[in-house]
Write a protein that binds this DNA or RNA. Structure first.
Lengths: 187, 187
DNA sequence: AAATCTATATACAGACCTGTATATATAAAG
DNA sequence: CTTTATATATACAGGTCTGTATATAGATTT
């Protein structure tokens, strides 16, 4: 991938997260990236295309990082679920953290017909599905229910952490997750 | 309050919730409300003023409804905390439910200098504070911690319910809340 | 050295948005 | 009936945004 294209993606990810997607014009993006609109529109057909690619890249990076981390550091399925929020905390508090795109995107694009809404909604569903599969492997009865609860904690904590770095929300989310996982495991 | 003004407020609340705040122009609001821009700008100095009033009204309505409900239906402090999510579920699943304004607003206005961001952030803090006071009265040690956890569940569930009515998220949030409250009460 | 590819600089069309100005209707009150 | 207050209709100024058109500079290849 061209260095300019990836530079634009990085800058857009950052600006979308800190200033909002709709409030960030392409002029601002190219100015910060140190290029021009002509170049941006060479690599992305439209701003919507850029948004979709930012979302796709961010989600892919997160999912890859998380499943790698889980697969290399744990063996037993039950352990994976327990370690999940450990790694999420690590991700969220890392300097590379630029927020979870789909959380903000679904709020800024509430129209269900919007491709941006559809993608972010799909990514949210995928992540919940991933948690649910971990819960299933750990022999938890209501895997979908637990996955939904954990995703509520996750999305809430990420949003809080986005709004105010070092809010500590993720710490309490982790504690809550442990309690919920333990509760769901016993019956 | 003039009927036209309240009509504009109701319509704006609805459109902000379903289409997003930034994506809803004042032309659309007055068209749906059956009036004109001149009238809107008579009652609201600017669109930002309208947004702030929508937020204030919505939050006030919710807080009033909730504390009334808690005060009339329960006596013991510990009961209030237990009943909290019962009533929240009732609120969220009621036909009148038009979402919690501050959740969406804080996502659409991430700039900390924005008055809209400041108000929505303050409302989120106030609600958390209210939960914390309930927890304190129920003699829970880490009242702030539990309040943060419950607010994560609440905000996550409301957002999920906003995005897809009847998602059932609030039901699982309620179950999770019960577990967390019980856990925090025993030690 | 000539041709080609990539990025820049700049201007602009067309759309949309907020907020205001002006003129008109309607209805209540003196 | 006349005055006054309230709402409408409509047009528009000024700004911002996306996306494109045009001309130019630099660098690499032939």
């Amino acid at each position: 991938m061209s260095t300019l294209k990836s530079k634009i993606l990085v800058v857009a990810t950052d600006l979308f997260q800190t200033r909002g997607i709709n409030s960030t014009g392409v002029d601002t993006i190219v100015a910060v990236a140190g290029t021009t609109k002509m170049t941006l529109y060479k690599y992305f057909r439209s701003k919507e295309d850029l948004i979709l690619e930012v979302l796709t890249t961010g989600h892919h990076d997160f999912q890859t990082w998380l499943s790698d981390k889980l697969n290399t550091n744990t063996k037993k399925p039950s352990e994976k679920l327990q370690k999940l929020f450990e790694f999420i905390e690590e991700w969220v508090t890392s300097p590379n953290f630029r927020g979870m795109g789909f959380i903000k995107a679904s709020a800024e694009f509430p129209n269900e017909e919007s491709p941006v809404h559809q993608l972010s909604s799909e990514q949210s569903r995928q992540f919940r599905q991933y948690i649910s599969s971990l819960a299933s492997e750990a022999n938890i009865q209501d895997a979908d229910g637990l996955a939904l609860q954990l995703s509520l904690l996750f999305e809430g904590a990420v949003q809080a952490e986005q709004m105010k770095r070092g809010s500590g929300a993720i710490k309490y989310a982790k504690k809550a997750a442990k309690i919920l996982i333990d509760g769901a495991s016993t019956h």
